[in-house]
């Protein structure tokens, strides 16, 4: 059951990604949101508006940190300066867990600012897991890794993505942030049954779920987070939580961001799936 050590047994419900266009509203009026996910790299500034917003959000809401810059899968070591800044943010926010992506994004100290696909091999899994362990030890908070959306499968892979994710999670003894939208996108882009993916990951390690919108192009699906969650993704989400049980769920909406109420309404659709898990009233 995904109330587990990877999400600090916190039992969080449905959350929303905190985004700039909504700052004023959610600080002015207390929104009935269970928790907000904060993009770690957006709140590392030591002063100015982001710091003030952070402090005010922390007064009113529960938050969880989600990063894009640790690049656990890069061959190079962790960026210690970045890690130190993240640790200060972990302490400031009291995040019960922290997540980042199962990907690489830097080479020789240069950053792509993208989430690049891993080769699924044991050597890559061992290396990635070792870095996750180092990060978790240093940050002193449970760490989860998120499966990314990808547009390329590397020729060097010797296992499936779900096998790789499972290997990394087991070797690192970390949690999984299961992005159901990404599972769907990858299944469409690379041609497999997404249910097989969901059936074959260690369910007891899933700390959190992401859902979000995508864009279907002529040749592939792009992870755009700029529209409501697509029906096939909702169906897959329903399938996932029937497997996992109630799981902290976060809606991502990062581009063409509508008013807060619309984002919140979209996130609350997850309730109908979560409610179906509740025991029937006598």
């Amino acid at each position: 059951m995904p109330i587990n050590r990877f999400n600090a047994f916190s039992g969080y419900g449905i959350g929303i990604g905190l985004r700039v266009p909504h700052y004023d509203q959610i600080l002015r009026e207390k929104a009935m949101v269970d928790w907000f996910e904060l993009l770690s790299e957006n709140f590392l500034a030591e002063g100015g508006r982001q710091r003030r917003v952070l402090d005010r959000v922390l007064e009113q809401y529960r938050v969880v940190l989600h990063g894009v810059g640790l690049y656990f899968g890069s061959a190079e070591p962790l960026d210690r300066d970045h890690l130190r800044r993240i640790k200060a943010l972990v302490r400031r926010t009291g995040t019960p867990w922290l997540s980042d992506h199962l990907c690489w994004g830097s080479a020789d100290g240069r950053y792509s600012h993208d989430l690049l696909p891993m080769p699924f091999t044991m050597a890559a899994a061992r290396h990635t897991a070792a870095k996750i362990r180092q990060a978790a030890d240093f940050l002193e908070v449970p760490v989860s890794v998120e499966n990314i959306s990808s547009y390329a499968e590397l020729t060097f892979s010797t296992m499936t993505e779900w096998e790789f994710l499972s290997e990394v999670a087991e070797l690192a003894d970390c949690g999984i942030l299961l992005d159901v939208n990404n599972v769907y996108i990858v299944s469409q882009n690379h041609g497999f049954d997404p249910h097989v993916y969901l059936d074959n990951i260690p369910h007891e390690r899933v700390a959190q779920i992401h859902i979000g919108g995508h864009s279907r192009l002529a040749t592939h699906i792009l992870d755009t987070h700029d529209q409501p969650v697509a029906d096939p993704v909702w169906k897959l989400y329903g399938y996932a939580i029937r497997k996992l049980g109630p799981t902290p769920t976060l809606l991502e909406w990062d581009d063409r961001i509508p008013p807060f109420e619309e984002v919140h309404r979209e996130a609350r659709k997850a309730n109908r799936f979560l409610a179906s898990l509740a025991p029937a009233q006598p």
Binding site: S74, A75, E76, W104, A107, D108, R110, S112, D114, L116, P119, T121, M122, A123, A124, H127, L154, F156, S157
Partner: peptide, 22 residues
């Protein structure tokens, strides 16, 4: 000769990929 069977191979692979997209 990039591969992903060692960390060094992974590094070469990532350098190649990075050089291509930049």
């Amino acid at each position: 000769h990039p591969n992903a069977d060692t960390v060094e191979g992974l590094r070469e692979l990532q350098r190649l990929f990075f050089s291509a997209i930049t």
